[in-house]
Structures are given as structure tokens and as C-alpha cells.
Simulated assay, not measured.
Amino acid sequence: MAVTIKDVAREANVAPSTVSRVISDSPRISEKTKRKVRKVMEEMGYHLNHNARVLVQKSTQTIGIVMKNSTSASLHDPFFPEVLRGISALCHQQEYNISITTGESEEAIFQDVVKMVQGKRVDGLIVSYSKKDDKVVPFLVQSGIPFVVVGKPIGKANEIMSVDNDNIRAAREATEFLIQLGHKKVAFIGEQPQFEVAAARRTGYMEALRLNDLEIEPAYIKSLDKTVLMKETVDEVMDLPNPPTGFVVTDDITGLNLLLCLREKNIKVPDDVSIISFNNTFIAQLATPPLTSIDTQIYQLGYESAKCLIEEIKNPSMFKKSVIIPTIIVERESCMAIKVK
């Protein structure tokens, strides 16, 4: 037979209302009493009736995670599992559950979000990207539900809670790292420019060139999508009369693909070309050669986004803050000083 609140109250020699307040972590109950009641709950094997708690507190104790792409595509990118690891760690501490969008298309993901919000299935949401012309964030703003964006919000950024890196600065430092190694011809390969992170990193790359009095060569700047493949991009750039000797790429997967395509053309890294990427995932460490990569502290991005969201859920009137997670260059074997010919 299941253990009830009354059973716990009897064993702990307190009123059932006191047990209920301990469960809801009421500030009216002393820490000493909370420890006593929680110990009895553990010893007796009491498990909270989640559905009853939802009815009483009008809270689902669940946060929604809005994926950038379909779940299968997102989880193949090592960035997202690491973000989820950070989110999960904080949610576990705060006794929150997670619900992830499962749509296979942009519209299906949006409909998942609508169902979460209108069906009152979650207390708040984390949007794991920032994208131009995205339908999700304007809908969440209009709905009034607490939410946090991982990235720099597009539009009224001061009205939206966010957790991000300073991607312009990080890309500027990445580009200057290559320039200091003697590379004067540096190319940039990014993901689709409608994503704010790609646009910010391209901006930082161009800033570094200007600050170092280097010409911005449009033929060196490339964006990848479903219709533009890495092999085609590498062929276009490396077959130029003056091909680059260094590449800044916006993530480790792109860096690995670049390595493979250069290898097919018998271009050696780092002897002929140097590469610096972003995120410092396991892919950067396992590549051959290992990639120099900007550590964006992905786990911390997830952890802080969950922390900010739960703070807002508990205190809806709090100001919309922006948290910036610092980055650092992790040097590996994909970069070397340019050879003087």
C-alpha cells in the first residue's frame, strides 16, 4: 500500500499540512523541520503524487526545450547533447522535468511549442537557438510564458532573457589568433546566416581583418546549408588564384568536414592550411589532427539557461537579464605559423 502524507505526518509527529508545506518548500517551515520530515519521507519510501501536485500548485514542474532542428538532427550535433546535459543538471537539482520538441520540420517544431504552451504542459521554455524570422520567440513573447533563449535574441533583446557567448569577440580573437601566426589570407565558413550565432561570428571575423588592415575578400566568406556542400565550397575557395592559408569555421563538425575535404585535395593541415573552429567538443579532440577550437562552455550555457528560466518561473516580475558565458581558445595541432617561402 502506498505511503501517504498522513503516514509521514504521523511518523514525523507533525501535522499533514506541515508535510505538504515541506513538499512545496514553503519558507514558513524551518530548515530543521524540513530535514526531519524529508528524512522520514525517504525512510518510508514516500513518493510525491505528481498529478496531485500539479493540481494544487498549478505547476507542471516541467520545462520545454525547443530544438534548433529535428531531434535526430540536433542530437547528432555534439553541441545539443552537451547543452541538454547542463539543463538536466540544474533541473535535477530543482526537481524539474524536461519535455523536448520532437517535430521533424520547422513548422512541426513550432506546433509542438504551441501545444506545450496552450496545453499548459510546461511552466516555461528554453529556446536553444536564435534565428531571424523565427516564429517561436514572437509566439512566446505574446503568450507571456517565461522563456530563455540560448543565443542573442533578435529584435527587442532587452525584453528577453538570454544566455550567450560574446560571439563577435570570440570570432575576432579566433581570427587574430591565425593572423598572429602570420596568416594574411584567412577564410570564413559558417552555417546558415539567418542564425544569429553565424552572423555574429562572421562579423567578428571581418572586424579582425579590418583591425589588422587586411582586405576582406568576399570569395573567402562562405555559408553552408542543405544546397551548399563542403566539397564544393573547398573546391571554390582553394582553386582561387590566391587561396587562403587559414580558416575560421563556426563549429567543430564543419571543421572536421573541412579537414576531410582538404585531405581529398592532398592539402595538409596544418602544413599547408590552418584551421580554428568553435565549441571545443569531443570532435575537435578526436579529429586528425586535433582541432584548435574556441571553448564556448556549452554545458554552462545549458546550466545557466535552466537556472535563469526557473528563477523567472518562480519570480515572474524579475528583470530580463542577459548572461554572457566567457570563451577561451584551446590550442591543438590544426594551427601553425605560416611558412615563409
Rank of each mutant, 00 (worst) to 15 (best):
D7V: 10
V8D: 09
A9T: 04
R10T: 15
E11H: 13
A12F: 10
N13M: 14
V14M: 06
V14I: 06
A15D: 15
P16K: 08
P16H: 09
S17T: 01
S17C: 00
S17H: 02
S17D: 07
T18I: 11
T18H: 07
T18V: 12
T18S: 10
S20E: 08
R21D: 04
V22G: 00
V22D: 07
V22N: 05
V22C: 00
I23G: 04
S24N: 13
S24L: 09
S24E: 10
D25E: 07
S26G: 09
S26D: 14
P27N: 01
P27H: 03
P27Q: 04
P27I: 02
R28N: 05
I29C: 04
E31F: 05
E31T: 13
E31V: 11
T33P: 10
T33W: 05
T33L: 12
K34T: 08
K34S: 08
K34F: 09
K34Y: 02
K34W: 08
R35Q: 15
R35I: 12
K36Y: 14
V37F: 01
V37E: 01
R38V: 14
R38Q: 15
R38G: 05
K39S: 15
K39V: 11
K39P: 08
M41T: 01
M41Y: 01
M41C: 01
E43V: 00
G45I: 11
G45E: 08
Y46C: 03
H47I: 15
H47N: 12
H50M: 14
N51T: 13
N51D: 12
N51V: 15
A52Q: 02
A52S: 07
R53D: 02
V54R: 10
V54S: 12
V54M: 12
L55I: 11
L55A: 05
V56D: 08
